[in-house]
Write a protein that binds this DNA or RNA. Structure first.
Lengths: 128, 128
DNA sequence: CGGAATCCCGAGCGATACTG
DNA sequence: CAGTATCGCTCGGGATTCCG
């Protein structure tokens, strides 16, 4: 699993289009939720799980690892018993939230309009 | 196909979380590309197809319809021969691009850092 | 407690062919 | 030209189970 196709695998590390690369992360359903949940401070794994609610442990784990790999989140392991692991935003993660917030604000402001428009659209045979 | 499960179907029209609803659209790989392509003015279907390049007709069609349904894009049909259809941004679509641009700017500014961080991450057995 | 491994289903999406 | 219909594959991600 480690040495499969080197060329294709390396592609992950050098995406040609920045915005698509970024959208792939935050567009994956959980990343943004996690990021905003961490905005108020460091959280433990199960605390995040409880706060977000409808995320499986697997996805929380995977998403956190990706966010860590991309430098949005820092993971700290405390070798206690029982184990304790804390996640917190890095500077990069915090700086990302700045432009993201204006987008969130836009979404909140215009969501009602979007829903109305959607309802008014002719033909109920639409996708999704 | 029109009258399946009413409750589940209506859910599409009234999403509880604004930002997730919005991200579902622009996170779908083509919406943002189309929106930015339309920023400079109205375009015809095939013109969009050629400009974006690697999008199939099916996905272009579906995505445009969703964007139209959500009120981001306006579709105008000219009953000529041969057929002519033009797509353009609505005011909503244009207003959306404002916060989106700051996010794009962030992505451009920090993409290199993200790629470096990603490369430096231990263990090549990462996801995606 | 904090994950990793396995199984599995449905959505996303491309390719192709057909229609108005 | 501007789509729609059908097919089939891939992959995200939930459920469940196992590990340190």
């Amino acid at each position: 699993m480690v040495e499969t196709n080197r060329a294709a695998e390396d592609f992950v590390f050098d995406q040609p289009c920045p915005i698509r690369d970024v959208l792939d992360r935050i567009g994956d359903q959980w990343s943004l939720l996690i990021l905003t949940a961490l905005e108020k401070g460091a959280k433990r794994f199960n605390a995040l799980s409880r706060e977000i609610g409808d995320v499986s442990k697997q996805m929380l784990s995977k998403t956190l690892k990706r966010l860590e790999q991309d430098g949005f989140v820092r993971r700290t392991l405390y070798a206690e018993v029982p184990l304790r692991v804390e996640y917190e935003l890095t500077e990069l993660g915090q700086s990302f939230l700045v432009p993201m917030k204006s987008l969130i604000a836009w979404a909140n402001a215009n969501h009602r309009t979007i829903c109305e428009t959607r309802k008014a659209f002719p033909s109920r045979a639409q996708a999704r």
